[in-house]
Design a protein around this nucleic acid. Structure first.
Lengths: 212, 212
DNA sequence: TGTACATCAGTGAACGCGCGTTCACTGATGTAC
DNA sequence: TGTACATCAGTGAACGCGCGTTCACTGATGTAC
């Protein structure tokens, strides 16, 4: 419910031994751990506190309410996905068109892979607790990774200049849709390859379609 | 939790005046109504019963548990979307390529439109309570509408034969992703037009992409 | 048609539960002099 | 360095709440003869 934002507080690792050290981080970590096991809908503040080994009320010194913790967890999970994506790209170095395309595909495949490996965290990242603002403004890591990958594809001549401005939106939609539908078992996992092929075709073509 | 399926029971409109008449339908209708207002996460069986004007335990004569009601509601909401889509297509009759394309776009636009008009019902249709089976097998109404629209597009020469087998999957992913991301305010509503353009391009091209 | 009975869709009280949040508190840590 | 005090991150008991589900029940409806 509440719209207040999470207090920034000590981001740096506080020294251990002082009361708890860094309860905020600990709560976040364990919240994500429990969510990834049971889903957001089955998470309670008290569970998190218990897991961390702290009384239920302690959390209120770090988050105004449960919602704020969940929003922080959602944002954090989103960054986790970015890390996962970065790792998946590292096997494909170089500036060739081939390398750029392989990195691009790895980005999409890892997006879906993260969703499959961590379905509950993926669901958490989107929907009600989605931070929104920062991502809509293109400031999130996954978005930045996508922009960078498309820039490289463009530099390698794999994207038609007329299409480039719409590329992020198209790619994100198609991959996000694929991830969601595969998660819901509405599409087979194999569909992803077809989708990636189709995306590449769209990006490379001139952007003209028959008479309207 | 439970995996038991909803008892079929009297699908036909039972005569009013007998106890309740058709409590199963009434529960379903009011569950959807409440969900569309407050979201699934805020729905309780007791609320639904109260809204219908029946005791909380009455529901158990029609659904084994709350989960079963929610799954039935999810399925019903999905069919609602199909109705919404059908209505949106009716302005574009004819067998010309132009008409087929307009109907196709109307299908995508109405998908997103339904999501925006009924965000909670849209969210309900996918995710945890998604029936899965029937849709995965392509038996759901929205899927059938998509297949029909693509067949018409194909007949009108707007889809390259090599692409046709992958068309459903590509289109559904891209549109579903767009709907979800627009709902989460991660993409502007205007992005949909670009995406539809890109989809049409993909469908019409030959399916070949540079050396891999 | 009338009666006896089985079926079935409701009631309403009760259950035990875990939840988010509050409050007054405590005691460790940090700081000013 | 030592002391007095302010700050702050914890505790733990308590709150009121609405929840899903159960149970024995009731009374209306349908049915066999």
């Amino acid at each position: 419910m509440s719209l207040t934002k999470v207090a920034p507080r000590s981001r740096a690792k506080a020294k251990e031994g002082y009361h708890h050290g860094d309860l905020e981080t600990a709560l976040l970590v364990h919240a994500k751990k429990l969510i990834s096991q049971n889903g957001v809908e089955n998470l309670s503040l008290r569970q998190v506190a218990a897991k961390v080994g702290v009384s239920p009320s302690a959390a209120y010194h770090h988050f105004p309410d449960k919602d704020a913790l969940l929003r922080a967890a959602a944002k954090s999970a989103f960054e986790d996905m970015a890390e996962f994506q970065v790792a998946s790209q590292q096997n494909f170095k170089g500036t060739s068109a081939l390398a750029a395309r392989k990195r691009f595909r790895a980005l999409g495949i890892s997006y879906v892979g993260f969703a499959q490996t961590n379905p509950h965290l993926f669901r958490l990242s989107f929907g009600p607790y989605c931070g929104g603002d920062e991502m809509a403004r293109g400031e999130s890591r996954p978005w930045q990774l996508l922009v960078a990958s498309l820039d490289q594809l463009m530099a390698a001549g794999e994207i038609h200049p007329k299409i480039r401005p719409h590329a992020e939106v198209l790619v994100w939609s198609a991959i996000h849709g694929a991830a969601t539908l595969i998660l819901d078992e509405l599409l087979p996992e194999a569909a992803l390859e077809s989708i990636l092929d189709a995306i590449e075709i769209s990006l490379k073509s001139s952007g003209k379609v028959g008479n309207k």
